[in-house]
């Protein structure tokens, strides 16, 4: 009815139809993102202020879960274990990936080489753990077999023992992800104009200087992306721990990372409210990591302008 007064009724009708089709197109996707990504985040915050346990009616208990979290020695211990994991995993993975990317970039464009380097990423973390657990097995793993051959039975290393389990898992994780990360760096290297290198070479700059003043700064957007995703991902480490160790987070309590503790509270003890508070803590850590990276590296802005 309103259309009658419009100067271009056809156009208005077309617009209406376009709007209608557009909504038809976006509604399923919007529903998915809202119901399973955005609302759960809000609900997660809300849950952390309740004593939800999946069975009884949840009631609002204010900051009690957070008070408990601050007084909970297991939370701080889990945070320390997770941090150890991150501190081994991230430097190794990032430096190794960058070195591999540089080597590939210099030596070969072979898709086969890239494919092999990338292959571990195709194997589920869980199975990667199973493979390495057999390879590093104290009694019948080939690595300890070799060590025994060289230095006798005492030269063997208990990779899965209480002391080394977290660094071991971190290194195994590096093995799986380094190819993926190297490909990201490799893609980044390809965007750097070759003229820059030619100019530097004519000026007689050393390899190290070229790397420091050209390659590294121009890779910054990729580096920030890699650091944010791998740091945030590392703080959420769970799959590898779940299979490497018995459900109790053993050996001893050596692998009780934060996510193990969240899962333990949520799905073993059904303390959904407290588990949500732990998750909020991890959420805040993740946001802080992203924010620090973004502001420290002035992300998004490449020196290429």
């Amino acid at each position: 009815m309103q259309n009658i007064s419009q100067p271009a009724p056809n156009r208005t009708r077309w617009l209406t139809q376009e709007t209608l089709v557009a909504w038809l197109f976006i509604i399923p996707s919007l529903l998915g993102v809202t119901v399973f990504v955005l609302v759960p985040t809000l609900r997660g915050f809300y849950l952390s202020f309740t004593d939800s346990d999946l069975i009884n009616q949840a009631s609002f208990i204010g900051l009690a879960n957070y008070q408990r979290l601050i007084d909970d020695p297991q939370f701080w211990k889990s945070l320390a274990i997770t941090s150890t994991y991150v501190l081994v995993n991230i430097p190794f993975q990032t430096v190794l990936a960058l070195t591999l990317a540089m080597a590939m970039w210099r030596l070969t464009r072979s898709i086969v080489v890239r494919a092999i380097i990338f292959m571990p990423y195709l194997i589920p973390m869980l199975m990667v753990m199973l493979i390495w657990m057999t390879i590093l097995h104290y009694d019948f793993g080939p690595v300890n077999g070799l060590l025994k051959l060289i230095g006798g039975p005492n030269a063997r290393i208990s990779f899965m023992g209480q002391e080394l389990i977290i660094p071991t898992i971190a290194m195994i994780n590096t093995w799986r992800y380094v190819g993926y990360t190297a490909l990201l760096f490799f893609a980044g290297l390809q965007t750097i104009p070759l003229e820059l290198y030619e100019a530097a070479e004519i000026d007689g700059a050393s390899e190290w200087r070229i790397f420091r003043t050209i390659t590294l700064p121009l890779l910054r957007p990729v580096t920030v992306f890699v650091l944010i995703t791998s740091l945030v991902g590392s703080f959420q480490v769970y799959d590898s721990v779940a299979v490497a160790t018995v459900p109790s987070g053993g050996p001893g309590d050596a692998t009780r990372v934060i996510f193990w503790y969240i899962v333990n509270q949520a799905f073993v003890r059904f303390n959904m409210g407290y588990a949500a508070a732990l998750a909020v803590a991890l959420f805040i850590i993740s946001m802080a990591i992203a924010w620090i990276n973004m502001s420290y590296f002035r992300a998004g802005s490449s020196d290429l302008g």
């Binding site: 993102v33 955005l38 985040t41 949520a266 799905f267 949500a276 998750a279 991890l282 959420f283 993740s286």
Partner: peptide
């Protein structure tokens, strides 16, 4: 397609993209 509020709605996607997903496991399970 052109429709009212398009860019505002798309911001929802950007938000979902950059937000850590660690909080989602428990509410989604519930």
């Amino acid at each position: 397609l052109k429709f009212p509020g398009r860019d505002k709605i798309f911001n929802i996607y950007i938000l979902a993209l950059i937000m850590p997903t660690v909080l989602n496991l428990i509410p989604n399970f519930i």
